Deep mutational scan, measured.
Amino acid sequence: RVIAMPSVRKYAREKGVDIRLVQGTGKNGRVLKEDIDAWLA
């Protein structure tokens, strides 16, 4: 299970990103909004 705040999950869904593919850089591997942006870049 991916650790991410609900707002980040929603952001990823809106961008069409599968959050399971994104490498989290936050505490304990948490996926941050910046990680979604970096994955899209």
Rank of each mutant, 00 (worst) to 15 (best):
A12Q: 00
R9S: 03
R9G: 02
T25A: 03
K27M: 11
A12H: 00
Y11W: 04
Q23K: 14
I19D: 02
R20K: 15
N28E: 15
G16W: 08
E14A: 14
K15T: 15
R30Q: 07
I19P: 02
R9F: 08
D37W: 05
K10N: 12
G29T: 03
M5P: 08
K15M: 09
R1D: 13
A12S: 08
V31D: 00
V8M: 03
I19E: 03
E34G: 11
V22M: 08
L32V: 08
N28F: 12
V31L: 06
V17E: 00
R30W: 13
V2H: 04
R1K: 15
W39L: 14
K15S: 09
V17D: 00
G16I: 04
R1N: 15
S7Q: 10
L32R: 14
V2I: 11
R13M: 15
G24H: 05
I19H: 03
A41E: 13
R1H: 15
R30K: 10
L21I: 11
R30N: 12
P6K: 12
Y11A: 02
G24I: 02
A4N: 04
E14F: 11
A41Y: 13
R9W: 09
E14T: 09
G26Q: 03
E14Y: 07
K33L: 10
R30A: 10
T25M: 06
E14V: 14
K10G: 04
R30G: 14
R20G: 05
R9T: 06
W39G: 03
V31Q: 04
K15N: 07
A12K: 00
D18R: 04
V8P: 02
K33A: 14
D18A: 06
R30F: 13
K10T: 10
R1V: 15
N28W: 12
V17H: 00
R13W: 14
V2R: 04
A38E: 15
I36H: 00
Q23T: 12
R20D: 13
K15R: 08
E14P: 00
L21V: 13
D37S: 06
V31I: 09
E34K: 15
A38P: 01
K33H: 07
A38V: 11
D37I: 08
R1Q: 13
I36A: 00
L32H: 10
T25H: 11
L21T: 15
I36E: 00
A41N: 13
L40T: 11
V8Y: 02
V2L: 07
L32G: 12
W39I: 08
I3Y: 04
D35P: 00
R1L: 10
L32S: 07
T25V: 04
S7H: 13
G16M: 14
G29H: 11
R20A: 10
E34R: 13
D37T: 07
Y11R: 03
R30H: 14
A4F: 03
G16R: 09
A12N: 00
V8F: 02
S7F: 05
A41K: 12
L32D: 05
R30I: 11
V17P: 00
T25K: 09
G29S: 09
M5L: 10
P6T: 09
V8E: 14
L21P: 02
L21K: 09
L32P: 00
R30Y: 11
R1F: 05
A12I: 01
I3D: 13
L21D: 09
K33M: 10
A41I: 13
A38K: 11
D35A: 01
E14I: 10
D18N: 13
A38I: 15
P6Q: 15
G16A: 05
L32K: 13
D18K: 07
G24M: 03
V2Q: 07
K15I: 08
Y11M: 05
V8A: 04
S7Y: 12
Y11T: 01
V22W: 02
A4D: 03
K27G: 12
L40I: 13
T25D: 02
A41H: 09
V31N: 01
K27W: 08
A12D: 00
D18L: 09
N28G: 15
D37Y: 06
G26M: 02
A12G: 03
L32I: 08
D37Q: 11
R30V: 05
S7G: 09
L40R: 07
V17N: 00
V31M: 03
W39F: 12
K33W: 06
P6E: 12
G29F: 09
A38Y: 12
D35Q: 01
T25S: 12
W39Q: 10
R30T: 10
W39Y: 14
V17K: 01
G24Q: 03
R1A: 12
D35K: 00
K27E: 11
K27D: 13
E14M: 11
D37A: 04
G26F: 03
W39S: 08
R13T: 10
V17M: 04
A38Q: 12
S7E: 14
M5T: 13
I19M: 06
L40Y: 08
A4W: 02
M5V: 15
I19G: 01
Y11G: 01
G29N: 11
V17A: 06
D35V: 01
L40D: 05
L32F: 09
V8K: 01
W39N: 05
N28L: 13
V31K: 04
V17G: 01
I36W: 00
V2Y: 03
L40A: 06
K33R: 15
S7I: 10
Y11V: 02
Q23N: 13
E34T: 13
V2A: 05
D35R: 00
L32C: 09
I36T: 00
R13H: 12
L32A: 06
K27N: 12
N28K: 14
R9V: 05
V22N: 01
D37F: 04
D18P: 13
K10L: 14
Q23P: 13
R9N: 05
T25R: 09
K15L: 10
K15V: 11
K27R: 10
R9Q: 04
Y11F: 05
I3T: 13
V22H: 01
I36F: 00
M5S: 04
L32N: 09
S7D: 11
K33P: 05
D35M: 01
N28Q: 15
S7A: 15
P6H: 11
R9L: 05
K27T: 11
R20M: 10
G29R: 06
G16L: 08
K33Q: 07
N28P: 01
G29I: 02
V22Q: 01
K33V: 10
L32Q: 07
V22E: 00
W39D: 03
Q23Y: 12
G29D: 09
T25G: 05
A38T: 15
E34L: 10
R13A: 12
A4G: 04
G29L: 09
R1E: 14
L40V: 11
L40M: 11
L21E: 13
G16T: 05
M5F: 12
R20Y: 09
M5R: 12
S7K: 13
R9E: 03
I3M: 06
P6S: 08
R20S: 14
A41C: 10
D35Y: 00
Q23L: 15
K15Y: 12
V17S: 01
D37G: 03
M5I: 11
P6C: 07
I19F: 06
K10W: 08
V31Y: 02
R20V: 07
Y11L: 03
G16H: 09
M5Y: 15
S7L: 11
K33S: 10
I36L: 06
I3H: 06
L21S: 14
E14N: 07
I19K: 00
R1G: 11
N28H: 09
V22P: 04
L21Q: 09
D37N: 13
G29E: 07
K27H: 08
I3A: 05
D37K: 06
G24L: 02
G26K: 05
K15H: 12
L40P: 05
A41F: 15
D18T: 06
G26V: 03
A41T: 15
K15W: 09
P6L: 11
D35H: 02
K10S: 07
K33D: 03
K15Q: 10
A4H: 03
P6I: 05
R13I: 09
